[in-house]
Lab assay of single mutants.
Amino acid sequence: GVRVRALYDYDGQEQDELSFKAGDELTKLGEEDEQGWCRGRLDSGQLGLYPANYVEAI
Rank of each mutant, 00 (worst) to 15 (best):
T27E: 06
D9I: 02
A57I: 13
D33K: 06
E14K: 14
L26H: 01
Q46S: 09
E34Q: 14
V55M: 09
L49K: 15
E32Q: 14
A22P: 02
V55P: 01
A6S: 04
G23S: 05
E31A: 09
Y50I: 11
Q35Y: 14
Q15A: 10
Y10C: 05
I58V: 15
L47T: 15
G12M: 08
Y50S: 02
Y8W: 07
L47K: 12
L7I: 13
C38F: 02
L29M: 14
C38M: 05
E56T: 11
K21F: 13
W37L: 12
L29G: 02
C38Q: 05
V4I: 08
I58T: 07
V4P: 00
G30R: 08
N53V: 06
P51T: 02
E31G: 11
G40E: 00
G45V: 00
Y10F: 13
K21G: 06
E32K: 12
A52R: 06
L42C: 10
Q35L: 14
D11R: 06
V55I: 04
R5C: 13
G30W: 07
E14W: 08
Q46F: 10
V2K: 06
E25T: 13
E25P: 04
G45K: 01
Y54G: 04
E17C: 15
R39N: 08
Q46T: 14
G40C: 01
L49G: 07
G40L: 00
V55H: 01
R39I: 06
E32W: 08
G40Q: 02
D11G: 03
L42Q: 05
L26P: 00
D43R: 08
L47Y: 14
V4E: 04
L18P: 02
D11L: 11
A52H: 10
Q35S: 13
D9N: 08
T27I: 14
E14V: 10
V55E: 02
Y10D: 02
D16Y: 06
A22M: 10
D16S: 09
L18K: 03
R3S: 03
E31Q: 14
W37E: 03
G48D: 00
G45R: 03
E17F: 14
A52D: 11
D43V: 11
L29I: 13
R41Y: 06
Y10S: 02
E56S: 09
D24V: 07
L42F: 03
Y10R: 09
Q35N: 10
S19R: 08
L26R: 01
